[in-house]
Write a protein that binds this DNA or RNA. Structure first.
Lengths: 175, 175
DNA sequence: TCAATAATGTAGCGTCTGCTACATTAACTT
DNA sequence: AAGTTAATGTAGCAGACGCTACATTATTGA
């Protein structure tokens, strides 16, 4: 069992249980190995977690690419709706919950977190740019605007302000 | 030393070192007591953390109120600038970093987190509403819009996308 | 004044943590 | 076939974790 073979199982465990309870022995059990072997393959826990986060970020990016449409959106609002529909996919939920732990780690400069978070946001930005309306006056700025608005809404929803998020989004997307 | 006497020292420690390293013995040391006494006063760690988060949320809310201006903003953009200026205060930085841990806990339904986060966002919303331009066509929606946008920008900055945040904000606030 | 209650100190239990020393087996190279 | 390296098992160390049992000192109320 190589490092790459282990990563999916480790990622699945982290996605389900969060980073707070990601200690060696539970992780090892989830991947059907021993803590001994995890250290053997990854060197130490820090690198393990960094690798797992990298794997998760890559998986998320691939899921985004898979859900990409071949037609551009007609309006910014429709563009936002598309990405919000993606985030409502059930398979996306564990990632959305884990995401805030990644942001928290990034804010505290935990090694590996910043890179994973940056990668995800960059990919999301690319996705948005390809989906922007053809006649948009400023697709570059528009994509960044939509990303900012959507992520703000996502956060508000995570802390029980879903209603605030909905009204904020509506105001920001009205024609 | 009562529960209320201890809270400021505990809060200071959590603000400086984060919730990840908020275990009983370091917390006790910071408050010049023993783990024994922390359990005695708060019952268990779960309630301790919930109380500390509540205290921090209240402190943050008070800081917001203290920084409130007596004049309304002239434009939504100016209103946003005011709150962004507040968040750049050096004393605010530890809270901004801790905030994402609170969001992460809230997303995972950790006890006490949701309440603290909700309280902070509610207060921020009130603050925004009092500062909205007098001639704004829809101050209710406008405040929610600004909150969503600003928090999205805050998150992007936390993960190394400060430039994206700046451009997104600019696009969302242009007249 | 004396009894009841609150507050604190000391010591430790059982468990989990990341990690390592040591030994053994499997696989590959020459 | 022999020797080298990679991969794995077993056992355990030293420390941190949340929490508790027990004893002791302060404080308070009758």
């Amino acid at each position: 069992m190589s490092r790459e073979t282990l990563l999916p199982a480790l990622a699945a465990h982290v996605l389900e249980h969060g980073l707070g309870s990601a200690s060696l022995r539970p992780l090892a059990k989830a991947a059907q190995t021993s803590d001994r072997m995890l250290i053997y393959h990854f060197g130490n826990k820090e690198r393990l977690i960094a690798d797992v986060l990298g794997h998760i970020a890559a998986t998320y990016a691939a899921a985004l690419d898979a859900g990409i449409g071949d037609t551009r959106a007609a309006t910014r609002s429709q563009c936002a709706s598309r990405i919000l529909a993606q985030t409502r996919e059930p398979t996306m939920q564990p990632f959305l919950i884990l995401w805030w732990e990644i942001v928290a780690g990034s804010a505290r400069n935990a090694p590996g977190y910043r890179e994973a978070a940056e990668a995800v946001m960059s990919r999301l930005l690319e996705w948005l740019e390809t989906q922007m309306p053809e006649d948009d006056p400023d697709p570059h700025a528009g994509a960044r605007y939509l990303l900012t608005l959507i992520e703000g809404a996502q956060m508000l929803s995570a802390v029980g302000h879903a209603r605030t998020a909905r009204e904020g989004l509506a105001e920001g997307l009205k024609a």
